[in-house]
């Protein structure tokens, strides 16, 4: 660096930095979280390979289920595509929620979190920012899945508004599930464990639901589980909104579960995060 510059000499056009006398702007948590969400989005834009799990993966799953199992389950690949695509949308977004727990677990040990914490911002702002930033990943995955589905013949049988509602419902549910992932990420010692536990929970939730096969083909004990599984409600709600069927009841159940999960895990996650960092 130049030895002639004096470090703190200010150019006349440089505005003053805030001091302790500057009145704080309102809604610091929302404002700072949004700024930090912007950081996450910049990072995604810079390293698009981060998006593999929400782009390539759903396409592989769609191909696998539709062309491999479709004929056997529904008799025709097109019929199965109509049945399974709303479910795949749910599944993709659910698995995408795992990433934030893994990433937070790795990131928390790094210096940049210390930096954030030494700033006069709400302590949970970096966390909320990361969660909001993840919504971009979820939207990407839904867009990719719907785009690919359309290319191979999926059609919405209701209307665009209802299909949009299905997407928003999945996003809302994923947002609440993100807090579970964050809770895991802040509780568990290393990121491998986060992934392990995540998959352990995710498999019975997704496969033990009405996602991939009609419930009436299952034995009674399994049907009992499937019927209480919140993922079944979410899947049914998406099916209803996209290709027709019951709507009100599964949508209400899905919303109820989302709120309940968030009410329990968001405070837990924030508390763990604050004690860990």
């Amino acid at each position: 660096m130049s030895s002639t510059t004096t470090l703190m000499t200010e150019a006349p056009d440089v505005p003053a930095a805030p001091t302790s006398d500057t009145p704080a702007k309102p809604f610091p948590l929302i404002r700072h979280s949004l700024i930090l969400a912007g950081r996450s989005i910049t990072k995604i834009r810079r390293t698009p390979e981060q998006l593999i799990d929400v782009t390539v993966q759903p396409i592989i799953f769609t191909v696998l289920f539709v062309y491999l199992f479709g004929g056997a389950i529904s008799g025709s690949q097109h019929a199965y595509l109509q049945f399974v695509l709303p479910a795949l949308m749910v599944q993709t977004v659910l698995f995408a929620t795992l990433a934030i727990g893994v990433n937070l677990n790795t990131d928390m040990g790094k210096g940049v979190f210390d930096r954030f914490r030494s700033l006069p911002i709400p302590r949970s702002a970096p966390l909320v920012g990361a969660v909001l930033g993840d919504v971009v990943r979820f939207v990407t995955s839904i867009a990719v899945l719907l785009g690919f589905g359309y290319a191979i013949g999926f059609r919405v049988e209701t209307n665009a508004l209802q299909a949009l509602a299905a997407c928003l419902l999945v996003l809302f549910f994923a947002f609440s599930l993100t807090w579970v992932s964050v809770f895991l990420g802040t509780t568990v010692r290393n990121s491998g464990t986060v992934q392990g536990i995540g998959f352990l929970v995710m498999f019975p939730l997704t496969f033990g639901s009405s996602m991939f096969v009609p419930v009436n083909t299952m034995p009674g004990w399994l049907q009992a589980w499937v019927k209480v599984n919140p993922i079944t409600h979410l899947t049914e709600a998406c099916r209803g909104l996209m290709v027709g069927g019951a709507i009100t009841e599964p949508v209400l159940w899905s919303l109820g579960w989302s709120v309940a999960i968030m009410a329990v895990f968001a405070p837990l996650a924030v508390r763990m995060y604050r004690s860990r960092t």
């Binding site: 302790s20 700072h32 990072k43 210096g111 940049v112 030494s118």
Partner: peptide, 30 residues
């Protein structure tokens, strides 16, 4: 609001540019 901290390991965001790192801090300082 009174302090600045430079840790033992450099606490910058490695995925952001130099400008983005400093702008982010500035924005967080309102």
């Amino acid at each position: 609001r009174q302090i600045g901290l430079t840790g033992q390991y450099a606490s910058v965001d490695e995925d952001l540019t130099g400008t983005e790192n400093l702008v982010l801090i500035g924005r967080l300082l309102d």
